[in-house]
Amino acid sequence: MNGVLYKVRESFSTVKPAEKVVADYILHHPENVVSMSIQQVAAESFSSPSAVLRFCKTLGFGGFKDFKLKLAGDLSILNMHDMDKHELKPGDSLTNIMTVVTNNNIQSLTESLQLLDIEQLTKAFHYLVNAKKIDLYGVGSSYLIASDAVQKFMRINKPCTAYSDFHMQRVSAVNLEAEDVAVAISYSGATKQVIECIQIAKSQGAKVIAVTKYADTELSSLADAVLFVAANEDDFRSAAMSSRMATLNVIDILYTACAHEEYDDALFHLKRTHEIIQQSGEKGGTTQS
């Protein structure tokens, strides 16, 4: 998986002007690029072959041929999920809102799957399986994702914490040890509170997993394992809709991998937690949702 077009789109804010025109041409003519030479792309984008080559290497590809090969693979996957990509406008029907929001979420999941590096995912999964304790950090909607992770991992007997209060997050981080894992959830990769907690966790020897957007951020540079997610947000970005869905999916992947690694033990604890919750419901408590 490579997420080529997503990487091209996200590169706009970081690449040099000479490479930005290459990125713009690729985004608008991806199908043409896979059958073009490096000289043709340079001519059509009003750049130079060296700028095209530099751009490909900036994105982490071995060269232009490697870039084209990965781009062709991504296009075949995207064509399998051909969706309506219209943006919402004031006055749109509820039917259109339903379709566009759903398709944006599906597209984010598909692009995030392409961005996930199997080596990084394997590393993160092993950290969690062997963790004595898992501490999760997030602010706002990212905290809700951290809280969701806690209720999942606790049910398979993996000790977890996630605090909404920043002071408690710092207290929790300073009490981590080398056998523990800190999971940072921040789409921007620049959330000050999360970064501060991760710095504290690293100073205590804990391993760090970051779930964030594809970019060279302070958070990704601090992490021992980085899991990138993609998002297609509209003007209502503050709701963090598609990025939340993509991040929840990564958490589900990690949880499922850990549960299957210790299958019998995880199944035992899942059955036991289910039974105790059912018992509380029979006694008039809150039942399982």
Rank of each mutant, 00 (worst) to 15 (best):
S47T: 12
A18E: 13
A72Y: 00
A43G: 02
A51T: 05
L59F: 01
A42N: 04
I38L: 15
Q40E: 15
F55W: 00
L71S: 00
E19Q: 15
V34C: 09
A43C: 04
L69E: 15
M36I: 04
L71R: 01
I38F: 03
N32D: 14
V52E: 04
S45W: 04
S50Q: 13
L71Q: 02
L69Y: 07
E31W: 07
I26C: 09
P49Y: 03
A51N: 13
S37A: 12
L59H: 01
F55N: 00
S47P: 05
A18M: 12
F64C: 11
V52C: 14
F64V: 08
Q39E: 14
I38M: 15
L71F: 05
M36W: 04
K70H: 14
G60K: 08
E31S: 13
A43N: 11
G73E: 12
K65R: 13
I38H: 00
I38V: 15
K20D: 09
R54V: 03
S37G: 15
I38N: 03
A43V: 09
F67C: 07
L71I: 07
P49H: 06
E31A: 13
A43T: 10
F61C: 09
P30S: 11
G62F: 05
G62H: 10
K20C: 08
A42I: 06
C56M: 10
S48K: 14
L69V: 07
F46N: 15
A42T: 03
A72K: 12
I38E: 12
V41S: 02
H29S: 13
H28G: 09
D24R: 12
F55M: 07
F64R: 01
S48N: 11
T58C: 10
D24H: 10
A18P: 02
S37C: 12
D24Y: 06
S35R: 13
V33L: 07
N32A: 14
K20W: 05
H29V: 03
G63F: 04
F55H: 06
V22G: 05
A43H: 09
F67R: 00
I26S: 04
Q39G: 14
S48D: 12
K70D: 11
F64H: 00
E19N: 07
E44S: 14
K57T: 13
A72M: 07
D66V: 06
V52G: 08
D24S: 14
V34L: 08
K65F: 09
A23F: 04
P17G: 12
L69H: 10
Q40C: 03
Q40L: 07
L53D: 13
G63W: 00
H29D: 06
V33H: 01
Q40D: 14
F64A: 09
G73Y: 04
N32Y: 08
